[in-house]
Amino acid sequence: MDVILFELALTCYFASAIVSITEIFKESKITHRIMLFSAAVGFFIHTVNIIYRYVAAGHIPITNPHEATSFFSWCIVLIFFILNFRYKINLLPSFIMPFVLLLMLSSSMLPREIKPLSPVLQSYWLGIHTVFAFLGNAAFALAFGIGIMYLVQEHYVKAKKISGLFERLPSLQSLDEINYRLITFGFPLLTFAIITGALWAQTAWGSYWNWDPRETWSLVTWFIYAIILHARLIAGWRGKRAAILSIVGFLTILIAFFGIKLLKKGLHVFL
């Protein structure tokens, strides 16, 4: 059942991502509806899948890399739909759904069995810490997509080449503002995740901070996003610089997430 639900969700995201890529070249009301519809169906099945695993395991299903990657994708799609509902950002799906598909594909390749929870993870912090961390990172993922869109559109306007996607991409100002909002949304979540993580570390390992790679990288990303917000307010770093920084910030998150997993070192071994 779990496998079927996951594969179904993956298939829907796959369809949505493929259509969203074709939309870069040619877009119509029909393609847009197909894209949104398959993403919505995928999201629904995905939600059922996560609930199913929650019930089967008896705890929040974010305890191994497969679950974590899957939950991360779920958060991105959730925020994407909220954003889409609120702003209708043309072409955003083309810049975010392929990434969701990649995440889901990597999740599908990781071992899926539900193992008994290790004693360290048996804590109410598990749900709080992970949900905040992933929601925050998902907001940064969307800021990353918007950042790329900004750079593409800025290139057109700056180079005075009015062709290609120029017509269909949103205005620079709105991309910049949405990027900023996403970061102001993600930043407190990341902060909260780091704090709850420290509290949890205290109860689990007896110390608030252990400088394990995941902790260190989280701190690095926290500083990057703090710089983005600070520089914007103080020095007016907006537009291109903010877009580049939001891309850099998210790449750091990816390194922290996948890179450390490949190294298999540190205390965060379970994720």
Binding site: Q153, V157, E167, L169, P170, S171, L172, Q173, S174, E177
Partner: peptide, 20 residues
């Protein structure tokens, strides 16, 4: 009928791609 074909229209079209 798409796309501006006079300088003033082109200017407005560009302004709309810079500002919301």
């Amino acid at each position: 009928a798409e796309n501006a074909v006079s300088i003033s229209f082109a200017a407005v079209e560009l302004a709309k791609k810079i500002f919301t």
